[in-house]
């Protein structure tokens, strides 16, 4: 027991160190080459050789890296909550349909633009200044709308499995409306929406980053309060009830927490695939525990590290092009998880 505790703190420590390293690597790569010693100097407060580097570093790369950390944490934490609450290894942040709601909001904004007579982007396909805010706000409104619908449902029904299925149905229904909008949308809008739906960590800075950070912090607090209940849920709902866990409270905090975490992540950065489902499994396999006191921080660390690394790779070092983040998370993440699953007996881990 003592040995495994030491083992865990070592893993947590090296995880934090890994996140720090990946953060540095992440801000070091990009289309403009900035020497590494200049970069470290700038972080310690020294002026940089070129002012343009300063702008790139502080107004683009660091906000993007911080966004990657926040989104990585948000999606992993909501995924872990969903998997434990529903006792389903395939559950992820998207099962309650909240992200699909965000997608629907953004689709109405972008694809409905021509119908309602507004433009979120100029002819070159870059967002107008209000466009980014518009996307964030419409995404949030969509997520909140689905969250309210889900809450109404959760109030009526008692069974968790039914909740899961209804969440998936809300997701499909939103997806169908998005399809209708896409069908009638014009080509430029469609491209803009497709790019949004591939996820992007860039473009969030200043006040937006601050808001994202606050919302995610607010979404993390319920997780911390419910650690003990999530551990009891490992044995299933009926045992949890027999140990004094109030399943209603747990369900509401779970809905609110994932609503805030996954909803804001999707509204700000688009639906980022893979992290929410895979990272909790990675955390379980690496830390070999079911204890949520360890799993929550572990998932947060792995999620942050994973998204920082993916983002660094998506910069295609040495090239001016960047790939969409979703491509990287799935392309590199899927083989990693397959390898882990084959190496360990996965069905025993969950």
């Amino acid at each position: 027991m003592q040995a495994s505790k030491k083992h865990t703190s070592l893993l947590i420590f090296s995880g934090s160190f890994l996140v720090l390293c990946l953060f540095l690597i992440n801000i070091a790569v990009g289309s403009v080459h900035i020497p590494f010693n200049e970069l470290l100097g700038a972080l310690l407060g020294n002026p940089m050789a070129k002012t343009s580097w300063n702008t790139i570093l502080f107004e683009y790369r660091i906000p993007k890296a911080l966004t990657a950390i926040i989104i990585g944490i948000s999606l992993s934490l909501s995924g872990l909550q969903m998997q434990t609450f529903f006792r389903n290894p395939l559950a992820g942040p998207y099962v309650l349909g909240i992200s699909s709601g965000a997608g629907l909001g953004v689709a109405i904004l972008i694809l409905g633009g021509s119908a309602f007579g507004w433009n979120v982007a100029n002819n070159a396909g870059n967002y107008l200044t209000w466009g980014i805010w518009g996307v964030i706000i419409s995404g949030s409104l969509g997520a909140i709308a689905i969250l309210l619908l889900m809450s109404l449902t959760a109030w009526k029904i008692k069974d968790s499995m039914t909740l899961l299925i209804i969440g998936l149905m809300f997701g499909s229904a939103s997806g169908a409306i998005v399809s209708v909008l896409s069908y009638f949308g014009n080509a430029e809008d469609l491209k803009l929406f497709t790019i949004w739906s591939m996820g992007s960590l860039g473009g969030i800075s200043g006040i937006q980053l601050y808001i994202l950070c606050m919302v995610c912090l607010a979404g993390t607090i319920p997780v911390l309060l419910m650690v003990k209940s999530y551990n009891a849920m490992l044995m299933g709902e009926r045992y949890a009830i027999s140990m004094g866990v109030n399943i209603k409270t747990l369900r509401w905090t779970m809905i609110i927490s994932t609503g805030l975490l996954a909803g804001s992540a999707t509204a700000f950065c688009g639906p980022i695939a893979f992290i929410g489902i895979a990272v909790p499994h990675l955390a379980r396999m690496v830390f070999r525990t079911g204890d949520h006191k360890i799993l929550f921080p572990a998932s947060a660390l792995i999620g942050a590290a994973f998204l920082l690394a993916s983002d660094a790779i998506s910069q295609l070092p040495g090239s001016a092009e960047t790939l969409p983040i979703n491509v990287i998370t799935s392309l590199f993440g899927a083989p990693l998880v397959i390898w882990l699953i084959l190496k360990r007996n996965f069905s025993n881990e969950f």
Binding site: M1, R87, K228, N231, A232, L234, M235, G236, R238, Y239, M243, G244, V245, R284, R288, T289, G290, D291, S347, N348, E349, F350
Partner: peptide, 20 residues
């Protein structure tokens, strides 16, 4: 009910009994 908390050790499972 079937118990599927695969990553729990026996001692951790028994410890869950102290939850209340």
């Amino acid at each position: 009910d079937k118990i599927t908390g695969g990553n729990l050790t026996v001692q951790q499972l028994v410890s869950l009994g102290r939850t209340p």
